Amino acid sequence: MAHDIVFFLAPDDETAAATRRGGPGQAFESVPCRFIEPDSAIVEWDMYFEEPSSKAPSVEQLLGWSWPEWVTVPLNDGVDVFALPQRLTQALAGASSAELEELAGRWTTRLRSADGDDMTDDDLLAVLQGIARLAVTAARTGGRLYSWSF
């Protein structure tokens, strides 16, 4: 399980890839969280906006979905940098409060069933709201959303 995750806004893949070594730090607008797997979260969010439902997806549904793009070559050091799909960034930028609340509830249900007491302490609705704010900026500036995790 990933420990430190930062969702961040960057102008392009090359700039995002440059964060691999030390993370995005203070140089980028970002939303931190802990103890989630960013790739499965991205897949779940993308599924929600493509096929809205308050019901959490099964593991089989998650595995059958298109997974986020690597921005850097995967190495065996535990660091991952992913690009969120553009359609997801657009969906998050236009998401209503009700959609974010429903998605947060669904995401919490899935994480709780998978991780139990080891689930993140983060307020998942607040995380999604922060990422949605980044998505609005990305849509306005032409940037992209990324996740960095270690």
Rank of each mutant, 00 (worst) to 15 (best):
S96A: 14
P74E: 00
V71D: 08
F150Q: 02
A126T: 14
A91W: 09
A56E: 03
M47P: 01
E69C: 08
W45S: 08
D77L: 09
A83Q: 12
S53Y: 05
R112G: 10
L100Y: 00
Y48A: 01
M119Q: 08
K55H: 03
A91K: 05
D118T: 09
A138K: 06
L124S: 13
A41V: 14
S96R: 11
D118H: 15
G116F: 02
D123I: 06
T15M: 08
L128N: 13
S149F: 00
P74N: 00
P24L: 12
L63H: 09
T15P: 08
A2I: 01
R21Y: 05
S66M: 12
R144S: 15
T108I: 11
R87K: 06
A139N: 05
R106H: 11
R20Y: 14
T15I: 14
A83M: 10
W70R: 10
W65L: 00
L100E: 02
A138E: 03
A56Y: 00
Y146P: 04
L84W: 06
A126N: 14
T89G: 09
P24A: 15
V73T: 15
G64M: 01
S149R: 01
A93Q: 03
T89A: 11
E51Q: 13
D39W: 14
G78T: 09
V6R: 15
Q90V: 09
